[in-house]
Design a protein around this nucleic acid. Structure first.
Length: 209
DNA sequence: AACTCGGGGCA
DNA sequence: TGCCCAGAGTT
């Protein structure tokens, strides 16, 4: 790893550890559902929903028994909830039909599940199964390029580079820190560089002040 | 490549 | 109030 990148990650870890929230889940199925729900929705909001959702419907079979409208009401409060209700219902049925109610452990199989794209698949692979992958969303793509943690034109390249840049034990936490940093400081518009803990190491610094 | 879904968070 | 999302599917 590039020593400069390692320094950046160390500072971010120290600065952001304990801040914000992470997804709450107890197993690969819960992580899969929580991650599908997290599209365009913050973790705090997802956690509000999943607390009762998983208590009432802990398994794919429990969830598959719901109607689309019932599930929609259960997850109301996250963005795009009608789409997600339809997708999650189709996903849990596919888990039952094709995977004996288990969550598959390859990217190809995960992406075939409705509502699961490359970002969600990677989060599940890494955090549920310890398989090298890094979920790259819009924030992480922007932050990694500005900080020159990666030099990539596509999220796919960012994903591959970050997977190698960060130790396996830190994937989950680093994923969280990078997104949090992107939301609060390294924003798409008008980033708050004067409040940024790694501003002195950032070649992409926009606000010189 | 552009468009849609959608309630929440934040200015 | 208005703007922008911790993406994925469809056209």
């Amino acid at each position: 790893m590039n020593p400069q990148s390692q320094k950046v990650m160390e500072i971010l870890e120290k600065h952001y550890s304990g801040s914000g929230t992470a997804l709450i889940y107890r197993n690969s199925f819960e992580l899969l559902i929580a991650t599908i729900l997290s599209a365009q929705t913050t973790d705090t909001q997802v956690n509000k929903i999943t607390a009762s959702l998983f208590a009432k419907y802990p398994t794919p079979a429990d969830m598959a028994a719901l109607s689309e409208e019932q599930l929609a009401q259960e997850i109301k409060g996250c963005g795009l909830y009608r789409n997600k209700a339809r997708n999650i219902l189709a996903t849990v049925k596919m888990l039952l039909d094709e995977y004996a109610g288990e969550v598959p452990q390859t990217r190809e199989e995960l992406i075939r599940l409705p509502g699961v794209g490359r970002k969600t698949a990677n989060v599940v692979l890494a955090n549920a199964f310890g398989i090298p992958a890094f979920g790259v969303d819009t924030h992480i793509f922007r932050v990694a390029n500005r900080l020159a943690l990666t030099k990539s034109k596509t999220p796919r390249q960012t994903e591959e580079q970050l997977t190698g840049l960060i130790r396996k034990e830190k994937w989950n936490a680093a994923h969280h820190w990078l997104i949090w940093h992107g939301r609060k400081i390294c924003k798409a518009q008008k980033p708050l560089c004067s409040d940024c803990p790694v501003s002195s190491l950032c070649p992409g610094k926009i606000n010189k002040a």
